[in-house]
Amino acid sequence: MEMNEYARRVEDIQNKLFQTAVLWLGDPSAAEEALDEAVYRGLKGCKRLREPQFFNTWMTRILMNVCNDEQKRRKREQSWEVLPETAVEAFDALPLREAIRRLPKELKELVILRYFSGFSLREASELLEIPQGTAATRERRALRLLRLELKEEEQA
């Protein structure tokens, strides 16, 4: 993919990427840095993207890697943020946005991709490189934990 086309495609989805990063990191300034980093990494690698129809998935994966890197860095400096899946009362007590942010990583990925980034279950499972059945199981667990009853058409 040429750089100009890359730029055009990123402009089309950058709001969605930014929103994903805000949900992931909980902080717009950190999300802004994550977006900048992801766009830069994508630009450097865009010539190797041979199937442009997977651009959204590819860029989202880069963004998630950047967000995961930042969370790992935070783990070295800050007290722990994630709640275990069994801390039902703790999740109930949190505003939904904070509850999502504090989900265990494998559940948070699913919730954000499926219900805020607009990916289907199949697309999310391919992006995360997990079987679709595993993705479905994790999605059910996450929704149960967040006390959400959502159907396919209710995703953002």
């Binding site: 730029a7 950058q14 990427l17 930014f18 802004e32 977006l35 900048d36």
Partner: peptide
């Protein structure tokens, strides 16, 4: 998105 990510990159 704050804008300018592509330009900065």
């Amino acid at each position: 998105a704050p804008g300018g990510s592509v330009e900065r990159a």
